[in-house]
Design a protein around this nucleic acid. Structure first.
Lengths: 340, 340
DNA sequence: ACTGGCACTCACTCACGACGAGTGCCAGCC
DNA sequence: GGCTGGCACTCGTCGTGAGTGAGTGCCAGT
């Protein structure tokens, strides 16, 4: 691996030029636009080495060079400095998020903001239920044999579910149930609830046992075990900007399809355990349909805890430093907002 | 307007062939595929008339004919018979919707189903708040000066909002407020609430006046006046199937953008007052960006009442009878489900 | 009123050649 | 040994031009 400093510099120049022009970049254009201090012939030699090592390739003989996924990876890891956001951008983020009235609104604003700033497709995961804790449980009688169970989490998320009761229940009983549930569960992390909830049935008054049992099973099935997580998506139209390049190949279709599959998108956030940004370039994606794209994702949440993920999906040919900075910044602001 | 029966038959044949082949249809192909009982020369004469009247046009001289927006309109109004759904389709709809656990789920399933069956982009509006009535109001203390206000409507929709109180409030007071609110508002249509709500402040106990006033303003501002309606969208990837035809022109972009603007989409349902399907073809659309598409929309709700709209957006070249039938069927099933 | 025939139009396809950006290699220079 | 200028070569792109065929419009005949 004889990649001396100049070769790395050449790679950096190729990536930057290609990202901005979207066209294969040749040796001559390169020396003109960057002060490399050497002639185009030398650059050509360097390019040959870079190509041999798999960092760049030629779309066809006698065309310019284009970075490979591996080239982008090297660029992201070692060649790009973090690009700090301009004060204007910071202000824009703050102003845009500050007016949010509730959790839904925060998520919606965040995802649109992200799409707008990065000009890519943005995805934001709602604060995950399993990672937050119970703030309050409410029981609302809908009819004599039906209850609405409402759960509020500390991240401001509200989940509700209609429960069919085994038999009619008095209002006083409901009040009592509500008291018991809250006394047991408020403040408990959702992941820790199952054992506690089981105990509730055993300790319940004989006549309330059936009702409590029904409630508990609903709680377990739908609120705790249920992995269904919600997502917000924005900026799909930015995909159309990926260039007629990719449009003609018809590669747009599978990407759009993947973006509609919540299950697939959720996978993107499986491993965001920290606030650090993660970049998956082209082939590095586990999701096959997204192999033509790059994904920049990060976790967010109040303080250092992570309650959800957010990120963007775009062409491998993207402005990585800028995008990473933006994703991180938005995640940080949203995290702060969740801490009230 | 000398449009005798045969000319109408020719128009119908052109529309049907064009929809299925996506290619301009010529006189010869027409007589081969349809038993018109006349020669191609005669058909040509008929075509000339149809073109003069503006129902069809030639993309270029010496190409086949293509229906115009006007032609589709005539086809929809007078030439197409309703295509009843196959039992298999009916079963699919029923099976798909039956497992829904709550309102969110119903809407989500409906929109995916619609997208899948029609192979177009589907849009479903959540049951509108303003057209439904209050089933229950719940107040949940979050801290001493903060309440969570939860409203449940008869369509199963739940809206919540955090309220900052002017000062600390006792639990008993909250219970009293809850009682009063529910006594006054349960069963009332949301549109009719404003006058009732105003009265609440005036009749409140002096010490509770400030609190009640805050609550009331939140109720009015965010729950009643607020026009924000939610939407579910699915099948965007079907747009890519509109054909490279439209892709090359880059006409996809504005359509995708329009589909991301909730405001625009909501306009589509402005006038769905009944369960009858409405078809807007090409130029008939008020939304400029959707002039290249056709929109099939209808209202839905329990019984004859309409609580929301749903529909699809697709190329003007679509299977109108089939699409209309599908949209109507899904709307009817969803309506039934809302009636529990 | 319909039909068969015929001349005409014009988008589409393909082959051909010119053009030029870009490369690889080599001999020479520092 | 590394860099440079020069040069032959490759190959995708663009423009031209002929050939093809689907489709039309019109007209004379039944």
């Amino acid at each position: 691996m004889g990649l001396d400093d100049r070769k790395l510099e050449v790679l950096r120049a190729i990536v930057e030029d290609y990202v901005s022009t979207q066209e294969p970049v040749g040796s001559k254009a390169l020396v003109e636009r960057h002060a490399l201090g050497v002639s185009s012939a030398t650059v050509r030699n360097d390019m040959a080495v870079l190509e041999e090592e798999g960092y760049i390739r030629q779309p066809h003989t006698s065309a310019g060079r284009v970075p490979t996924d591996r080239g982008y990876r090297l660029f992201v890891d070692r060649l790009s400095r973090v690009k700090p956001l301009s004060p204007a951008e910071r202000r824009a983020i703050e102003r845009f998020l500050v007016g949010a009235v509730d959790l839904d609104d925060v998520v919606h604003r965040a995802v649109r903001l992200l799409a707008q700033l990065t000009r890519q497709v943005a995805v934001v995961q709602y604060p995950s239920l399993t990672r937050s804790s119970v703030r309050h449980l409410e029981l609302v009688p809908v009819s004599t044999t039906r209850l609405l169970l409402v759960m509020i989490t500390d991240t401001g998320r509200v989940e509700q579910r209609v429960v069919e009761l085994p038999g009619p229940v008095e209002v006083e009983e409901i009040t009592e149930l509500r008291r018991t549930l809250n006394a047991t569960l408020v403040g408990v992390k959702l992941v820790d609830t199952p054992p506690l909830v089981q105990g509730l049935v055993e300790r319940a008054e004989p006549q309330a046992k059936a009702t409590m049992s029904t409630l508990v099973s609903v709680l377990l099935e739908t609120l705790v075990e249920r992995h269904e997580e919600r997502l917000a998506l924005a900026g799909t139209s930015n995909l159309a900007r990926m260039g007629p390049l990719d449009l003609t190949t018809g590669a747009l279709r599978p990407i759009l399809e993947a973006l509609e599959e919540e299950v697939i998108l959720l996978k993107l956030f499986d491993e965001v355990k920290s606030g650090a940004a993660r970049v998956r370039i082209g082939d590095e994606n586990e999701v096959v349909d997204l192999r033509a794209t790059s994904v920049v994702s990060t976790g967010y949440g109040p303080g250092a805890t992570v309650v959800g993920g957010m990120g963007i999906v775009g062409p491998t040919r993207m402005d990585y430093p800028g995008t990473i900075a933006t994703v991180r910044a938005v995640a940080r602001y949203v995290g702060e907002m969740l801490g009230h």
